[in-house]
Simulated scan of single mutants.
Amino acid sequence: MNRTSIIYIVLISFILAAIVYSFYFYKQVQDYDQLIEKGMSSESSLPTYHFALIGEEMNHDYWRLVGQGAKETEAAYDVFVQYEGPKRSNPEEQLKLLDIALKSQVDGIIVQALNDNFTPLIDRAVEAGIPIITIDTDSPDSLRNAYIGTDNYAAGQLAGEALIEDTNGKATVGIITGSFDNAHHQLRVEGFRDVVEKVEGIEIVAMDESNITRVKAEEKAYEMLTEHDNITAFYGTSSFDGIGIVAAAKSLNKEENLYVMTFDTLNENIQLLKEGDLDAIVEQQPFEMGYKSIEIMLDIIKGKSVQDTYFTDASIIRISNLDNWKSEKDEAS
């Protein structure tokens, strides 16, 4: 092979390499342009409003429904709902999440205000221009813009009236409350007491807290049934209290003729009602609370007039009206 041929081969190789590199470079530029366009498209489709919802307990059917209600608004409104909460009820963790939401400067915060420790942070958020709605548990002395949830005092009264009716005004009562410290449980006890203490044949002989766990509810109910052999009725103020009370009564063979009332239509509670182990359930509307909280928040942001409180319905579910309740739920879904 002569020198000229070698030069031609080298030149052709350079040309081919340049063509391949040019094509590769062109492809990279095209891919990068597509990424930019995709990013710009993604940015332009971001919701206008970013709301934080801080619940009590992520691993709880009641709070799952609150979250589902709030998240469902994303399909109807120009919003993104960031739903956060502790795995188990923990006010300190909720306060940290509230602080994070405040510092993140979200457009609005929906939070369960379990105790007075929430008031300073709620006030700081409102003063910083972030509207606050309390949900499930109110902080009426704070600067919050509105409350949505059960009227917990009225729900306690409703429970008291149901117990009087179902026991013909004669009962020796033990109370298992979810928490002595949480405002909504305090109100449910207060409302209940104010009704039943007017009836001569009803006496409350013991009260303890379950820390919103079925294990603790069972332990406390067991102690009450052991110490107060004359207890004929129990009132539980949280979702798991009835489950724990029934378990304690069965372990002591005292479930016969024992009246048990609890809160919330968990699947387990409904099953116990069917089996005759629970006598009454105080139903709340967690899905509605979540959904309407976002609608109220949008009204606040748009400068519309809103109410101070939005009470969702509470009702009593017994075996006598269970079929009607299920039919209504099926129709609504």
Score class of each variant (00 low, 15 high):
residue 9 I to C: 15
residue 13 S to K: 09
residue 15 I to D: 09
residue 18 A to T: 14
residue 25 F to Q: 15
residue 26 Y to S: 13
residue 26 Y to I: 10
residue 31 D to F: 11
residue 35 L to S: 13
residue 36 I to P: 02
residue 43 E to W: 14
residue 47 P to Y: 07
residue 47 P to R: 08
residue 48 T to W: 00
residue 48 T to E: 12
residue 56 E to M: 09
residue 58 M to F: 12
residue 58 M to V: 15
residue 60 H to P: 10
residue 65 L to S: 08
residue 69 G to Q: 05
residue 69 G to W: 00
residue 78 D to N: 13
residue 80 F to W: 15
residue 83 Y to V: 12
residue 86 P to A: 07
residue 87 K to Y: 11
residue 89 S to L: 15
residue 93 E to D: 06
residue 94 Q to A: 06
residue 98 L to R: 05
residue 99 D to V: 07
residue 103 K to W: 05
residue 106 V to F: 05
residue 112 Q to G: 09
residue 114 L to T: 03
residue 114 L to A: 11
residue 119 T to Y: 14
residue 119 T to D: 12
residue 127 E to C: 11
residue 128 A to S: 15
residue 129 G to K: 12
residue 131 P to T: 08
residue 133 I to E: 03
residue 133 I to Y: 04
residue 134 T to E: 07
residue 136 D to N: 14
residue 140 P to F: 06
residue 144 R to M: 04
residue 144 R to G: 08
residue 151 D to T: 05
residue 152 N to I: 06
residue 153 Y to N: 09
residue 153 Y to D: 10
residue 158 L to K: 08
residue 158 L to I: 12
residue 159 A to F: 02
residue 162 A to V: 01
residue 168 N to I: 03
residue 169 G to E: 08
residue 169 G to S: 02
residue 171 A to G: 04
residue 171 A to T: 07
residue 173 V to C: 02
residue 175 I to E: 02
residue 179 S to Q: 13
residue 181 D to L: 13
residue 183 A to D: 04
residue 186 Q to G: 09
residue 189 V to C: 06
residue 191 G to Y: 03
residue 192 F to H: 05
residue 196 V to S: 07
residue 197 E to T: 11
residue 208 D to N: 11
residue 214 R to Y: 11
residue 216 K to W: 01
residue 218 E to H: 12
residue 218 E to F: 12
residue 219 E to F: 10
residue 226 T to Y: 15
residue 230 N to D: 15
residue 230 N to G: 09
residue 233 A to T: 05
residue 234 F to M: 08
residue 235 Y to R: 09
residue 237 T to R: 03
residue 240 F to P: 02
residue 240 F to M: 14
residue 241 D to T: 06
residue 242 G to L: 00
residue 244 G to M: 09
residue 246 V to C: 04
residue 247 A to Q: 09
residue 250 K to V: 04
residue 251 S to T: 08
residue 252 L to N: 07
residue 254 K to E: 05
residue 256 E to M: 10
residue 256 E to S: 11
residue 257 N to P: 00
residue 258 L to M: 14
residue 260 V to H: 02
residue 260 V to A: 05
residue 265 T to L: 07
residue 268 E to D: 14
residue 271 Q to M: 15
residue 279 D to R: 03
residue 279 D to V: 02
residue 280 A to E: 01
residue 281 I to K: 00
residue 284 Q to I: 01
residue 285 Q to T: 01
residue 286 P to R: 01
residue 286 P to F: 00
residue 294 I to P: 02
residue 298 L to T: 01
residue 299 D to M: 10
residue 300 I to A: 04
residue 303 G to E: 07
residue 304 K to Y: 07
residue 307 Q to K: 13
residue 308 D to I: 04
residue 310 Y to T: 00
residue 310 Y to F: 13
residue 314 A to N: 04
residue 318 R to D: 00
residue 320 S to N: 13
residue 324 N to V: 09
residue 325 W to F: 12
residue 327 S to W: 10
residue 327 S to G: 10
residue 330 D to C: 10
residue 331 E to W: 11
residue 331 E to G: 06
